[in-house]
Amino acid sequence: MSYGPKIIDHYENPRNVGNFGTQADVKTRKDVGVGLVGAPECGDVMQLQIKVDQATGKIEDAKFKCFGCGSAIASSSLATEWLKGKSLDEGLAIKNTQIVEELSLPPVKIHCSVLAEDAIRAAIADYKAKNGLPADADTAQSR
């Protein structure tokens, strides 16, 4: 697979790698939303965590980990950059097509960006569920 410079850059210098605690920790943290999508059998697992400022409702920090191809790593890295500073609704407005465009993903790699969009939605849905906020009609986790 020959990739463009933006994918390579995110792959070689991934932004915001990490998490806000172990799986057990983040499960109980109300200010953290966790999205874990994909499956090892499929060769891709993406984990996206958002930390929300409870006062302003804005995403103050985002972190990812990804088991997957170069495009999946780049897509999730980019997603964390875009999420920081956004409100939940603004986060939900991020579309996979924007990721495709920004990174110039080749057609066979479009599903990697879909996975990133799924991860964003799953993380926000998790945060909402933990805080008793109404689930967005559009946050179906699986498609």
Partner: peptide, 10 residues
């Protein structure tokens, strides 16, 4: 970078 390696370690 791997969430699976974290899980394995946990």
């Amino acid at each position: 970078l791997s969430p699976l390696y974290d899980m394995h370690k946990e």
